[in-house]
C-alpha cells in the first residue's frame, strides 16, 4: 500500500502507536500515571497476572495512554493480594488490596480517569512506615 498523504501517514502512525507506546526515550522523568502491580509468588497465586493483563487491555480499549503499568516485586501485604498501587504525579500513592481482575474497571474509571480514589478498596496502611 502506498501512502498518499500526510493524513494517511498519520493514520498509520496511530494504528501502530501500540508498538512503541511502552517505551521511554530515556531522556528524563515522565509525567505519566503509574500503576504498580505486585507480582511476587503470593500475588501471582491470587491472580496478579490476570489483574495486570486486565489493566493493559482496559487501558488499550479505552485508549488511555498517559498510564504506565509496571510490575514490581512483593509489596508486603500477602493477606490482601493482588496489591495494586497507583501513583499520580504530585499526589501521594494509593494502595489497593484484593484487586482481582473484576476490580480493574472501577479503579480505572474512578481513580485514574476521574481522580477519585475508590475508598472501599483502599488498603489502610501508613505510607510513611511502609
Amino acid at each position: 500500500m502506498k501512502i498518499k498523504s500526510l493524513d494517511e501517514l498519520q493514520k498509520i502512525r496511530e494504528d501502530h502507536a501500540n508498538k512503541v507506546k511502552l517505551r521511554d526515550s530515556g531522556n528524563g522523568e515522565s509525567d505519566k500515571i503509574e500503576v504498580l502491580i505486585g507480582m511476587a509468588t503470593c500475588g501471582i497465586s491470587s491472580g496478579a497476572r490476570e489483574t495486570l493483563n486486565a489493566f493493559i487491555e482496559e487501558l488499550d480499549h479505552k485508549k488511555i495512554d498517559n498510564v504506565k503499568v509496571v510490575t514490581v516485586g512483593c509489596i508486603g501485604y500477602c493477606h490482601s493480594e493482588p496489591i495494586v498501587q497507583i501513583n499520580i504525579p504530585g499526589q501521594s500513592p494509593v494502595l489497593y488490596g484484593n484487586v482481582k481482575k473484576d476490580k480493574v474497571q472501577i479503579i480505572l474509571d474512578q481513580h485514574i480517569v476521574q481522580g477519585k480514589p475508590v475508598d472501599n478498596l483502599i488498603l489502610k496502611v501508613d505510607f510513611e512506615r511502609a
Binding site: I37, G38, M39, A40, T41, G43, I44, T71, V72, G73, C74
Partner: peptide, 8 residues
C-alpha cells in the same frame, strides 16, 4: 524474576 515476578 523480572518478567514473571516483577523483581529487578
Amino acid at each position: 524474576e523480572h518478567i514473571i515476578k516483577g523483581r529487578r
